[in-house]
Amino acid sequence: MPDASQTAASDEQAAAEAPARRFAETLLEVQNITLRFGGVKALTDISFDIKKGEIRAIIGPNGAGKSSMLNVINGFYTPQEGTISFKGKLRKAMRPHEAAKNGIARTFQNIALFKGMSTLDNIMTGRLLKMKSNLLLQALYWGPNLREETEHRAFCERIIDFLEIQAIRKTPVGKLPYGLQKRVELARALAMEPELLLLDEPMAGMNVEEKEDMCRFILDVNEEFGTTIALIEHDMGVVMDISDRVVVLDYGRKLADGTPDEVRGNQAVIDAYLGVSH
């Protein structure tokens, strides 16, 4: 990476200019998480916390266990050891739909949209948990159900405006280009009004302009809705720019944890990324 130092230098400037944000309240805390698949240890004794309102980055080389970490947080994998406490409630594991109910939303590395449905319908699925009408009312599509559908539609339209995807509202998402699909997936997650938003490589495979757009959206979401964000990203420039604190994983172990500046100076992290010369 010839231009890594260059980016790093400009980041340092940016970091120096912006005053570091302080967060008091802990939203999520993972403690001593160990996850095994058969004999393979994917995560070993990982502990860190996410404060309310911050942007937390999880970085590390390929296969470090970053996605597994997110899967543990939102209940897709059940760790063999360790606990997670979310909003002060301690638990060993929760089912993904419970996590959703508690306010954890996420996007995926390889887009997980509902390909047969339109953009609008995809975003509307994010509102499912907030909708209340029973089967009979839905069959009649009348009265309270009609009101509910319209209200949530209005909410989704606000997100559509926010993410600037008005034009593709009724297009089936399977037909959209990659960058837009990523945006729709973010829209669906936002429709859940989450307290904690997990983003798995939101900028993978994007060109520079798309990345800039995505960064802007992430920062806006964090600022305007006050959503706490945990993100996995490989683009170090982006990570150092937008995140408040960074946790570094390698081979399923935690290597470092701290502000972007601290992490950047950490010898273990530099070794993990650049390799150690013997």
């Binding site: 089912r95 993904p96 996590a99 939303a105 949209l113 948990l129 997650a189």
Partner: peptide, 9 residues
């Protein structure tokens, strides 16, 4: 996508 469905609740 049943997995994603479960994750949105």
């Amino acid at each position: 996508m049943d997995i994603a469905a479960e994750i949105i609740g």
